[in-house]
Structures are given as C-alpha cells and as structure tokens.
C-alpha cells in the first residue's frame, strides 16, 4: 500500500519529482541562504534609502535587463533539452544544452564587462554600502554560475553517449541551472529596480 501521490497531471504522465530529490534539498537550502542575504540588504537599504539611491543610480538598468533575458533564455533552452531528451531525441537535446551554455556565457561576459565598467568609474567594493552589496551578491551568484557550467558539462556528457543518458541526472543538472537563473531574477530586481 503506497501513499505516494500518483494523480496524473495535464500531460497524462504520472507525477514525479524532476531529478534527484537531493538536488531539491540543496535548492531549498540555498534559497534560504540567499533570502537571508536579500533580507539583510533590504533592511539596511530601507534604513539608508538616500545613500543607496545615489549609489544605485550608477548602475545601467538596460544592461541588467539584457543579462536577465539572456539567462532566462538559457533556462528555457535547458528546459527544452530536458523535454527532448525525455522524448528520446538526444541530438536535439544536446544542441539545446549547448545553446543554454552559450547563453550562460553571454551572461558571464556581460557581467564581467559590467564589473570592469563600474571599477573603471571608481565604484569598487569599498566605495559605498550599496556597492558592497552589489559586488557581494553578484560575485556569490557568479560562483554559482561557474558551478552551473560544470552541471551543464555533466548534462552534455550524459547526452553524448547512448551508454549513459541517465534522464534523472539530466534533470538534476537542469534543476541546478534553473536555480542559478531564478537567484539572478531576484538579485536583478533587488539591485537594479528596488527604490
């Protein structure tokens, strides 16, 4: 007798956890860690609104928008890759994974360009409280992004040979990559848009 929820979703498949459950523990744990960073940032920001607003005005909003859309497109590509891999079209799944990695690289390059521009303009880690949070959050995210490239490498390796192709592992890697994406969605709103 099992109590597992097996109600069929709209697409007719049996409900199941995407990827390894361990990855979901990691996603939820990391979300709490990032939420605490975000909360502390918002608390100090609300206490010193004018100083934060002055420093924030040096950011380029459209650059943040392009970075976000690139990472969202990368996430979208990996979501396609997971679906096509499940459907058995591994060549297309691999192509979508490469597109995802390429768009991740676009984000990476834009981020580095943005840092260089800010540093050249004299806005460094010690310039102001706002820029301290800016570099802290973007660098922590950047490290997660770099680990994400390892996850994409594992995913592509899995899809490369008929001897491997472990769908659960593909989904696990994809789950990590999407997490990097949604952390950025939050960081973008908090650093570039919040007033």
């Amino acid at each position: 007798m099992t109590t597992i929820d097996t109600a069929a979703p709209a697409n007719g498949r049996v409900r199941r956890v995407p990827g390894q459950p361990d990855m979901w523990f990691f996603v939820f744990f990391e979300s709490l860690v990032f939420t605490s960073y975000f909360g502390v940032y918002l608390y100090y920001r609300a206490r010193h609104e004018q100083a934060f607003l002055r420093s924030q005005s040096h950011l380029t909003l459209w650059l943040g928008v392009v970075e976000t859309i690139a990472l969202l497109a990368s996430s979208w590509s990996i979501a396609r890759s997971v679906q096509t891999s499940r459907a058995g079209d591994h060549a297309r799944a691999r192509r979508d994974a490469y597109i995802a990695a390429g768009l991740g690289m676009v984000f990476l390059v834009l981020k580095v360009v943005e840092w260089v521009r800010q540093i050249q303009a004299g806005h460094t880690f010690t310039s102001s409280d706002f820029f301290q949070y800016f570099y802290f959050l973007t660098v922590i995210h950047f490290i997660h992004l770099l680990i994400g490239f390892v996850a994409l490498g594992v995913l592509i390796y899995q899809l490369s040979s008929p001897a491997r192709r472990d769908q659960e592992l593909v989904e696990t890697c994809a789950t990590y990559w999407h997490t990097v994406d949604f952390f950025w969605v939050l960081i973008f709103a908090l650093l570039y848009v919040v007033r």
Partner: peptide
C-alpha cells in the same frame, strides 16, 4: 516600486519553478 519589484520577481521565480523546473507536474509535496 520596491514591493512591486519584489512581488514581480517572486512571481517570476514561481513560474520558473512551475514550468522550467517542472514542479507543475511534480508530486503534491514538492
């Protein structure tokens, strides 16, 4: 603006989880 930006970002996170991360088709617990 602050509350709208945070709420919209969390809405995006929910959509990413539901659609891209396939939580929509996952067991009730997840």
């Amino acid at each position: 603006v602050t509350v709208s930006a945070v709420v919209l970002a969390l809405f995006k996170v929910r959509v990413i989880m539901g659609e891209f991360m396939e939580v929509r088709g996952a067991p009730t617990l997840l």
